[in-house]
């Protein structure tokens, strides 16, 4: 019990004194996962909308592929991103393996199917006639799509939450393509794993608390927006 109590006590001390290293790791985590979420929202929402709004042969297969992608194992993504970015790999010339950029790429690949899958579901839930109604009010195709995205905004917020939640807590890909380099590509999850394996439970607990709080705050903000929208 002592181990845990001591750990928690020291963890709060680290947090209260705004430990430089812990702070840097937190900011990098936020930056990397935030950017990856933004990238995945752009790709996921646009492709998801195209899939949802168009009828084409093999649509079912595409949708089930996307849905499968929602559960893409991060280590598999990490493996393939590593291979691609490896010095002798197809994108090796970029020289970005073991950089934060590599983590952003890997995390985007993980989050995109999540956002896309929820987008497809959300857009398909809108009444079919709504599209005709928007067109019949004189909207261009682009205006129609924008209007539909606005109509699905609450579900799309859920997509953003799910995407961010998926990558901020992800470890496999981050450690494989980022390398957990101190002060450079070390994020909350990779640092937690390392500190735990070293027996530094206090630091590990501090990092875990930050991870939990981060996830909680982001979701709190999004939920707040969602609830306010719903009440109107």
């Amino acid at each position: 019990m002592d181990l845990i109590l001591e750990g928690i006590k020291k963890a709060f001390l680290l947090l209260a004194t705004l430990d430089r290293e812990v702070l840097d790791i937190t900011l990098l985590s936020l930056k990397v996962s935030g950017l990856a979420t933004i990238v995945s929202v752009f790709i996921g929402v646009s492709i998801g909308t195209v899939i949802a709004l168009n009828e084409f042969p093999g649509k079912r297969i595409v949708v089930s592929l996307v849905n499968t992608g929602m559960g893409l194992p991060p280590v598999v993504v990490g493996l393939f991103v590593t291979i691609f970015l490896w010095r002798s790999g197809p994108l090796g010339f970029l020289g970005i393996l073991y950089t934060p950029l590599a983590i952003i790429i890997a995390q985007s690949i993980i989050a995109t199917p999540i956002v896309m899958g929820i987008t497809v579901a959300a857009m398909q839930q809108l009444p079919k006639k709504l599209r005709l109604q928007i067109l019949a009010l004189g909207a261009t195709r682009l205006q129609m799509v924008w209007m539909l995205i606005k109509e699905a905004r609450l579900s799309l917020l859920a997509a953003v939450m799910a995407g961010f939640g998926g990558v901020i807590s992800e470890i496999g890909a981050s450690i494989m393509v980022g390398g957990n380099i101190k002060g450079y590509s070390r994020v909350l999850t990779t640092a937690t794993v390392m500190e735990t394996s070293r027996g530094n439970f206090d630091v590990a607990i501090a990092l875990s608390i930050i991870l939990l709080l981060l996830a909680y705050f982001i979701n709190l903000v999004l939920t707040h927006i969602q609830q306010r929208e719903r009440k109107q």
Binding site: Q133, L135, G138, M147, E151, R153, E229, Q232
Partner: peptide, 30 residues
């Protein structure tokens, strides 16, 4: 042509916005 006509369906098919914004929608498209 669609900018010069309008259609109302059996279901109201309103947007999730205020009544004002709904009525303004067609004008905003223009």
């Amino acid at each position: 042509y669609r900018k010069k006509v309008a259609m109302v369906f059996q279901e109201p098919l309103l947007f999730n916005a205020t009544v004002f914004e709904n009525v303004a929608a067609g004008l905003r498209f223009r």
